[in-house]
């Protein structure tokens, strides 16, 4: 125990050093460790901000059991990239006042960031962002998913998202009849 305690003290000092370096360590469900800037984590994630403020950040890696390593890697990647692009983020938000866009339109780098994700990774990232309370990342990922739906026919949407058609043939016909103009080019 003594040894452990000593180890704990050593950890304590290291923690102070780490606090100086402004990073936090996150641990995925499968035990991988990731390091992310404390400032960016607190700014982008309400959950992490609460943890940092409440002192519940574990230096050995704060356990995030619900998030897989791939998703967490993307989260950390996003935080780091976001930290590097604050000026343009401010610029975008200033242009929103007259832009009636539903979400704050993703910036170029955010667009690229979600574009390179696979289908599964994207949905995992949505879940992770939701769990961590990262509103902006949630906006960006959900925006990407709705972009994937736009301009597609119901069949194409089912194919893209692997959705099972749970309507009967008669119901589908009824649905198409109700608003026939929306299906005119199918």
């Amino acid at each position: 125990m003594e040894v452990d305690k000593g180890k704990g003290e050593a950890e304590e000092t290291r923690k102070v050093a780490e606090a100086d370096r402004d990073t936090v360590t996150l641990k995925s469900s499968d035990g991988k460790l990731f390091e992310v800037s404390k400032e960016a984590a607190a700014r982008l994630s309400t959950v992490l901000a609460g943890m940092i403020a409440g002192g519940s950040i574990d230096d050995n890696g704060t356990d995030l059991k619900q998030i897989g390593s791939e998703a967490l890697e993307n989260v950390v990647d996003y935080c780091n990239k976001h930290a590097n692009s604050i000026p343009s983020a401010a610029l975008i938000s200033s242009s929103i006042s007259f832009n009636t866009a539903p979400f704050k339109e993703p910036e170029e780098w955010e667009r690229k960031f979600v574009d390179r994700l696979s289908h599964d990774a994207l949905f995992d990232l949505v879940e992770a962002a939701n769990f961590l309370g990262m509103e902006r990342l949630l906006d960006v990922t959900c925006h990407k998913i709705s972009e994937m739906m736009k301009g597609k026919s119901p069949d194409q949407i089912r194919e893209v998202f692997n959705i099972k058609n749970d309507y009967t043939k008669e119901e589908l016909e009824e649905i198409r009849q109700e608003l026939a103009w929306a299906f005119y080019d199918d």
Binding site: C142, I145, S146, M149, K150, I157, R158, L172, L179
Partner: peptide
Amino acid sequence: GLGSPLDLIRAAAT
């Protein structure tokens, strides 16, 4: 995120 009524109606048919 789907702003257009057209997209909403089609999504509702999936």
